[in-house]
Structures are given as C-alpha cells and as structure tokens.
Design a protein around this nucleic acid. Structure first.
Lengths: 222, 222
DNA sequence: TACGTTATCCGAACAGTGTTCGTTTGTCAA
DNA sequence: TTGACAAACGAACACTGTTCGGATAACGTA
C-alpha cells in the first residue's frame, strides 16, 4: 500500500463523511457536489478525481448507510434468548435508526434526490439485502426451533435474485412472510417520518402495539 | 366573473396541468419552473403572476393529486354490498392509483423534491386526510353494522387534529386501528414502488394475500 | 370616448448547480 | 534525473429559481 493509495483512501473517506454530515445536518437539498467540495476544502473539479460525479458519491453514501443500519439491527438483536424478543428488538432498531438518521433513511427507501439514478450493477441492491437478511434469519431460526410453525402456503415468490445472497438459500414461503412483515412495519416508519400521522400522539406505543400484532400473527405464542 | 378572472383560472389550470404532465412523463427531476413555463409558452417570470414560485405550484399539484387519489378510492369502494368487500377494493384502489401515477404517489407520500417545504397553513394536510377518510368511514360502518367487533383497547391516539375534519368525530381506538391498517398496506406499496422487492414476482397476488391477512385480523369473518 | 389604474408579460440579471476541458503542480518509479 | 502519471485547479457552459424594472394590454370609471 503506497503512500498515494493511503492518501486516496483517506480522502475518499473524508468526502463520504462530509457528504453524510451535510445530508444529516442540512438535508437532501444541500447535498450538492460543490457544497461537499467546499466542506473538504477542494475545488468541485477535483472531486471528479475520486468520484464519477454527484451520483457516484450518493451511491457510495447509500451503500454505507445500508450497512450502518444493518449493523445497528444486528447489534440490537444480539444477546436476547428468545427469537421473538430478538425479532421485536430488530424491528424496533429498524425504526430507531430511522429516527436517528431520518435523512439517510429517506435516501435509502425513498428517492429524495430528483434525478439520481442507481447504478446498473446494483451495489445498492446488495446492501439493501444485507438489511433484510437479519430478519429472514430470525424467521428461519424461529421456525427451526419450533417457536413458530411453517407458514401456510401462499402466492409464490421468485427467490432467484435474493436466494444466492443468503446463506443456505431461502424458502419462497418464508421470503413472502418476510416481505409482508417488512412491509407492515416499514409503512409505519415511512408514514411517521413524512409527517402523515396525527401530531401529539405517543407513536412509540402505537408502534409497539403494531409489532405485537405482527408477531402474534406470525404464530409466536407470547 | 369577469373575462380576466376566467382567463386567469384557465391559465392556472393549464399551468397545473403542464406541471402534472411533466411530473408523470419526465419524473420529478424535470419538474422545474422554467420547464413548466416553456410547456405553457410563457416566460419564467410570468409564472410568478399566478404562483408564488415553484413550491407553490408543487403545493397545488399535491392537493390536486390527493383529491384525485381520494376520488379513485371512493369510486372503487362504491357499490359493493359487504363492507369487507368495499374495504378490500379501497385498499386495492390505493395501490392501483400508485401504479398508475407512481411519480404523483411519491410526491404525496415521500419527498422526491429536495428543498420543497409544505406551507404552514396545511392545505396538503387537509387533502391527505381526505384520502384516509374513506378508510375510516368503512371501519366505522363495519363496526356499527356488526361485521367486526370493537377494537381491543390500545395506546391512545390524539384525535384533536383529525377529528374535526371527520363527520361525527372519531374514536381514538378506531383511529389507531385505521393508522395501523394504513401503515401496513402503504408499506407494501411504497417498497414496491421504490424497487425493494425481488423482481419477477407476482406482486399482485402477494398484495392480495397481505390484504387477506389484514382484514382477517380486523375481525371480518370471511 | 378618454383616462387613470391595474394586471400581465417579458428581458435581463444574480446566485447557485453539475460537469467538462486544458493546464499546472506534485509524486512516484525506473 | 527523467519520464509517466495522479492530483488539483480555474475557467467555462448549460442549466436552475428568483427578483426587478419597464413595457404592454385590458379594465373600470368619469
């Protein structure tokens, strides 16, 4: 590792850090290439030495943010005995992370930057799957340990795209259950973050109540 | 109604129409004030005679889109006998409308235009509530006709903001159930629209399956 | 009909954006 | 030391939203 390579890596990290800070503190509207360049103290043109443009910086940011959320979920779910408890903690961590990084959450799951196009080779898709993997693993574990029963059959899911990225493959019915579960608590977080719920309400408790309903319906015998 | 007032109304409608067409056909990135001005054949400065700026045009667009979705939901839910069927059709209409107007849906429920700020006096909030009202009415009707039972008590919801806008007020428990229900099918539509589900899957069937689960849990005896 | 008022419209300008190009500076290896 | 390459920059281009001043047209009224 030469000196130049090391400096390059440091500067790439500094640029990504400046971009993330800018996004979190000033919002997506201020996530501009020229602004990032000002923050790291270089000219806009110089940034093109390290990234192919603003979209490339954003793509790197998305991948890092997905991995950050995935790590937060894994940490929150670790340690508890019952799978039900770990699954609950994972869903709570999903929402907590969104509250701590609302701009990043929007960047990951909505499209707050008009004109941004994710790259074809899909590094952001890979990273997104790394967030869902803990949930799928918990469902699978709950099933193998007998905490919940096998899901009733339902519409088929095409597992070609996701199965190769999950250890031991993935069952179509479980993937469907995972997607449905995800959709339910994600919808709450998304609507909440975009201000679509009545103000003055203790949304923590409502979310807990929603998770209760979801886990109950999954078949956990509380 | 003078001639000038009529011309003004027509031009306002034409501007909004151009903005909506631009959004739907070219995406949020092309929803620019200068572009809209080009489409209607006037200078950018002239647009300020009719709107206070780009944000004001977008606000008008949001209100119209909310009302359009609300109308689609009401049309879809009308006519069927059982409340369960109408509720199901309403949820399907919610998703169908999103598929027919994906860019508009994102504009309503996510924040695809960085820097846009909704106005303080909340015309967009009023319009958003007009979308939720049919769902709340259906829940209330199912309860009064005995198709489902009263919801078990749960965390309280502050009904001050929404109750005055719904005829006959609103019950806190029912509002909570409505919010939870909405969150669940909205999450599916949002994730689907943003490409977070495995490709090649028959998502229509999965959504139907999800709605089955939701209505069953609401207490409808199929 | 004539006049003053007002709405409408536009051109020019300003500050900001992403991106490209040509050039210069700095670093590394042969 | 020299040649090759990475890195950095200034200037420019085509955009964007917005403001301002002035011109033009339509209006209500005397």
């Amino acid at each position: 590792m030469t000196r130049r390579e090391r400096l390059r890596e440091e500067l790439v990290a500094e640029i990504k850090n400046a971009a993330r800070t800018r996004l979190n503190e000033a919002g997506a509207a201020e996530l501009s290439l020229r602004g990032i360049a000002r923050d790291v103290g270089m000219s806009p043109a110089s940034l093109y030495t390290y990234f192919d443009g603003l979209d490339d910086v954003i793509t790197a940011l998305i991948v890092d943010s997905f991995d950050d959320q995935a790590a937060a979920i894994r940490v929150a779910a670790a340690g508890a005995r019952s799978v039900q408890t770990r699954l609950r903690r994972a869903t709570v961590a999903y929402r907590d992370w969104a509250h701590e990084h609302p701009e990043e959450f929007r960047l990951l799951y909505e499209s707050p930057i008009a004109g941004y196009q994710a790259p074809e080779d899909g590094p952001t898709v890979d990273a997104a799957i790394r967030v869902m993997t803990p949930f799928m693993e918990l469902l699978h574990e709950a099933w193998t340990t007998g905490e919940i029963e096998a899901p009733p059959p339902g519409p088929p899911i095409d597992t070609k795209a996701t199965a190769p990225r999950v250890e031991g493959g993935i069952d179509a019915d479980w993937l469907r259950v995972g997607i449905e579960t995800w959709a339910q608590f994600h919808g709450f977080v998304s609507l909440e973050l975009n201000g679509h719920f009545p103000p003055g309400t203790a949304l923590d408790d409502v979310y807990d109540h929603l998770i209760d309903n979801i886990t109950t319906r999954l078949g956990f015998t509380d």
